[in-house]
Design a binder for these strands. Structure first.
Lengths: 201, 201
DNA sequence: CCCGTTAGGATACGAATGTATCCATATGGG
DNA sequence: CCCATATGGATACATTCGTATCCTAACGGG
């Protein structure tokens, strides 16, 4: 066989170029030719490694989910050793855009979210992440409640759903520049204080 | 002068057609010809009443803001007679998509929000509504606090910002079908209960 | 050495887009 | 009555898009 090339690596480069465009100029600015230019290759190469634009778009969404997953796992790696509040703070801080890279990812995520609202094909790739997060945190909070770390009059599932929706809404306001990351983080802390009692270190 | 036609009425019809497309098929599906077809007129008519596609898009955003405003004013018309909690419940319920029409408007709103993130021209039309809402509610809550209707350890501005972000995040989850309107409303009520004390009628 | 296969360059095609132009028509004020 | 003008129909144009096709080059196994 002739010239062998690492297909996965090529595809990854193209997907990253796609996300770079989507996060800075929006999904509507994503075209085969733009991706080729951004990745520094010819149009043919993009066609060669992705049969469809659809396939390309789906790969972008998949990669985005993987990135979130990676960041989450990284932050909650030693979750067993963290206080319940520590777990919540870590997870919610991952959702919120902090540095430039996570801001870009949040932009792309938002673009995909909006596109999926009117594009069944994208919706099908299905972002199970929100539900996964909600379940994970609900288990944690229920455990914490049984351990007496939060008052019994709280409903864990409702609290968790609320906190995640709060983080999402705050993300929107950060992206649109209505608020900075610090202001958003402060609001989350405020709510964690009310849930878990006054702050830690 | 020959045949006179109500330009405002024509423009309104076209803007409504635009929003109908944007809310069901997304902003990327909005084209001059599609609007013409949706409104049952020729392409030329769309061109005649809007010089640009840009002007058309801006008119859609303006109309959307006006609708929100109208709905808000309607709900808070007798706000002076409402309990503070009643005001909050009314406002937050307006933000949340309830019936089909407000769901469609929320879809369009979200589409515009996402587009504005990468389109300076749209961002310039500027949605001052969030800030207006936040200020309005903050004043209300501060007053309620001074009247002793909520405990002094609450920070009105933070509470309001949190509630609005919560409503936004819940709206997202409702649009994506992760949750129904009732579930979202219940979560908001839950938080209002915690803020104002146990529920009213 | 050499040839079959993989990797990509070059180009084309039809559809859809925003915008511009040319022209018809009808109507209300003189 | 009649014509200047407001309204809009028909059509064209250059771009851009996704996709398809044709062909070349390189390279590793025989």
């Amino acid at each position: 066989m002739p010239r062998k090339v690492d297909h996965d690596e090529r595809r990854r480069r193209l997907t990253e170029a796609l996300l770079r465009i989507a996060s800075t100029r929006g999904l509507q600015a994503v075209s085969m030719r733009e991706i080729a230019a951004e990745a520094g290759v010819s149009l043919r190469v993009v066609q060669y490694y992705f049969t469809n634009k659809q396939a390309l778009l789906e790969s972008g969404l998949t990669e985005l989910g993987a990135r979130m997953d990676r960041r989450l796992k990284q932050r909650t790696a030693g979750a067993g050793e963290l206080t319940p509040r520590g777990v919540f703070a870590a997870v919610l801080d991952v959702v919120l855009p902090s540095d430039e890279q996570s801001r870009l990812d949040s932009m792309a995520w938002n673009a995909y979210y909006t596109a999926a609202l009117t594009d069944p094909a994208l919706a099908a790739v299905g972002v199970t992440l929100p539900d996964t997060l909600e379940n994970f945190l609900t288990v944690r909070l229920t455990t914490a409640q049984q351990a007496g770390e939060i008052t019994p009059d709280r409903d864990p599932r409702t609290e968790v759903a609320g906190l995640l929706a709060l983080a999402n809404g705050l993300t929107s306001s950060v992206l649109s520049g209505q608020r900075g990351h610090e202001a958003a983080a402060k609001i989350i802390d405020y709510h964690l204080d009310r849930l878990f009692g006054p702050a830690p270190a």
